[in-house]
């Protein structure tokens, strides 16, 4: 099967769109009709064919456009990609993980040939061919983490493990849900999660950290996280908040279905071999409400989740001001029928 890549934008004229197949495979994050924080971590096992869990690093119809958008963001602000000096080895580990996974999972799109430390990488969708020496950063156009994350959908953080904690010491972050790598780089697990309300008191981070410290090679895990975004915008960074913030106030009863997106992060965590660091890719999926309600179960459930969400969480996730409009729109797709368990569509 050859994949078709959308010609689309994530800013200005916002031509981003999901094909019917992309809607069906959207990782809807709610497995019940209500939501509260939990350590919802499960093994990152190979999922059903066609699902976003089928491959280790999902490549979909938005790949080329997302990489183009990342390039624009980096041109404006190169500090979205940073690596503290001791993280270069982790960068190589991550480059290897992605190249090996993609070449095995998508042989028609990616090729990797290795002869000792002499590597040859071919990325067909982006038209890249690169010969380089593994562990020699001067043989690549930029550092290893930057090199591979310019070719991998999602944000990526590399976490150093020491002193019984994880430290966000490197990352490529251009499609974040309102946090700044430039500000947070160097922080430990509790510090970079400090602004998250409620979860600290629930002990969520203590338990999650304990679990992640013992994460093992070859046994990656995943979880889904979510928020709401007006317009299909990847760069909802605090850096540019004053530029995209006004768009949040343009929602009306007439356009909410088309302009309001459910934004889901597929977060995976991987123990890496040489550096003992943890790789933390955060892959973002966007789905307009009017597309989402084409799956009746999702329309019903999202209505109930957002209607009943505690105010504090709506505030933190940044959509409190638009909640009445959103809930009102979704209520039209909730016939009060019971919903089935799990996240997948019924039919």
């Amino acid at each position: 099967m050859t994949m078709r890549f959308n010609d689309e934008t994530f800013r200005d004229d916002y031509t981003f769109h999901n094909s019917p197949a992309a809607i069906r495979r959207f990782p809807f994050p709610f497995d019940q009709d209500s939501y509260m924080y939990s350590v919802n971590i499960e093994p990152h096992r190979r999922g059903a064919a066609g699902s976003v869990f089928q491959h280790r690093f999902d490549v979909d119809e938005h790949y080329v456009a997302e990489m183009r958008d990342r390039e624009i963001t980096l041109r404006d602000d190169p500090l979205r990609c940073q690596s503290l000096p001791h993280m270069e080895l982790a960068g190589w580990d991550f480059l290897e993980l992605v190249m090996v996974s993609k070449a095995e999972d998508y042989p028609e799109l990616f090729e990797l040939h290795r002869d000792g430390d002499r590597w040859h990488w071919i990325n067909r969708p982006l038209g890249i061919e690169q010969r380089f020496i593994f562990l020699d950063a001067t043989s690549l156009p930029c550092g290893p983490m930057e090199y591979i994350t310019r070719q991998t959908q999602g944000d990526h953080a590399l976490l150093d493990q020491r002193e019984g904690n994880l430290w966000m010491d490197a990352g490529m972050v251009t499609s974040q849900a309102d946090w700044s790598l430039d500000f947070d780089i160097g922080m430990n697990f509790f510090e970079w999660h400090a602004p998250v309300p409620k979860a600290h008191e629930l002990g969520v981070f203590q338990r999650a950290l304990k679990f992640l410290l013992s994460l093992q090679q070859g046994a990656p895990v995943r979880r889904l996280n979510w928020t709401m975004t007006v317009n299909p915008r990847l760069d909802t960074s605090p850096e540019n908040y004053h530029k995209w913030g006004p768009e949040k106030r343009t929602l009306t009863a007439g356009n909410v279905g088309a302009k309001q997106y459910l934004r889901v992060e597929l977060q995976t965590l991987w123990r890496m071999p040489r550096s003992n660091a943890v790789a933390f890719p955060i892959r973002c999926y966007l789905l307009a409400l009017e597309d989402l309600v084409t799956v009746p179960k999702w329309g019903r459930r999202l209505h109930r989740v957002l209607r009943d969400l505690p105010d504090e969480l709506a505030e933190y996730k940044g959509f409190a001001v638009n909640r009445p409009l959103i809930v009102d729109y979704l209520s039209r797709f909730d016939d009060c029928a019971p919903t089935s368990a799990g996240i997948f569509p019924d039919d």
Partner: peptide
């Protein structure tokens, strides 16, 4: 003025207060 603090920068974080409603 946020309480979020970066040890690396030695500074607190300031975020535009009227970003959504200039």
């Amino acid at each position: 003025v946020r309480d979020h603090y970066s040890r690396r920068l030695g500074a607190f974080q300031g975020v535009c207060v009227d970003a959504e409603t200039p």
